[in-house]
Amino acid sequence: MLEHLFPNQLARGVVECLIAALTAIAVIVLARRRAPDLLKEVPLAQLRGLLQIVAVGAILAALLHGPQWTSIFVLVGMVFAAASIVRKRAKQIPGAFALALIAIGVGAGSILAIMTATGVIPLRILVLVPVGSMVIANTMNTQSLFLDRFRGEVLAHVGEIESALALGASPEAAVARYLRAAFRSSLIPAVDNIRSLGIVWIPGIMAGMVLSGASPLFAALYQFVVLSTIFSASALACFVASYLVTKRIFSAHSQLLLRA
C-alpha cells in the first residue's frame, strides 16, 4: 500500500519509520503503569537512534567511493560511542568509560581483526562496517548487562564481600562468585541467539543477503559466522572487563569502594 502512496523510496522510508516509532510509543503508553520512565526514554532513544543511523547511512554513502581503510575509523568511532553508552549503565563504577572502551575495543577489535585477517569478513566497507557495527553493538549490550549485573550483585552482597576480605581474601577471591554470575547472565542473550537461530528468528543480515540475490544456504552459513563472531567478541569483552572492574571497585589496600 505504501509503495503506491509513496513511490519515492526515501519518502516511503520516512513514513515507515514513523509508523514503526508510533507503534512502539503506543505499546509504551499501553504499559505506562509498569514502566512510567520509558514514556520519556523511548521516544528520545528512538529519535537519537534514527538520527544516528541516518548519519551512518550518509557516511557509508560518502565512504563507498573512498579507500577501504577508512572503515577502521568508522568502527573506532563506534567503539567510543558504545563505551559512552555503557558508562551510563555502569553508574557508581569508577572509570567505567575507560573500562568499557578497553573491554569493547579488545573484545570486538581483536575478534574482528581475526575474522578479517582470515578473510571470513572481507575488508570491504560495505561488509566490514555493517558487520563490525553489529559486533560492536552486541558487545556493548553484553557489557552493559555484565556491569549492571555485577554492580547489583556487589551492592546486594557487601556484607559477604567484606566478610571475605576480613578473612584475608583478595578482592578477586571476594567477588569471584559475583563475577561468575554477571558473566553468565550477560552472555545468555548471545547464547540464546545462536541456539534459536533459524527456529525462532531469521536475522536481518540473512534476510538481506537472500533479498539481494545470495544463495539462502550461503546466507544461512554466513549468519552463523556473524552470530558466533558476536558471541566471541562479547565473551572476550566480558573477560577483559571482569579483570578491570575488580581493580576499580577496590582500593589498593583491598577495601571495597562500591557501596550503596
Binding site: L165, A166, L167, G168, A169
Partner: peptide, 13 residues
C-alpha cells in the same frame, strides 16, 4: 600486607 594483617586480626560482624 593487608592479607597478613587480616589473618592476624579476625573480625566477626
Amino acid at each position: 600486607s593487608t592479607s597478613t594483617l587480616r589473618r592476624s586480626i579476625g573480625m566477626v560482624m
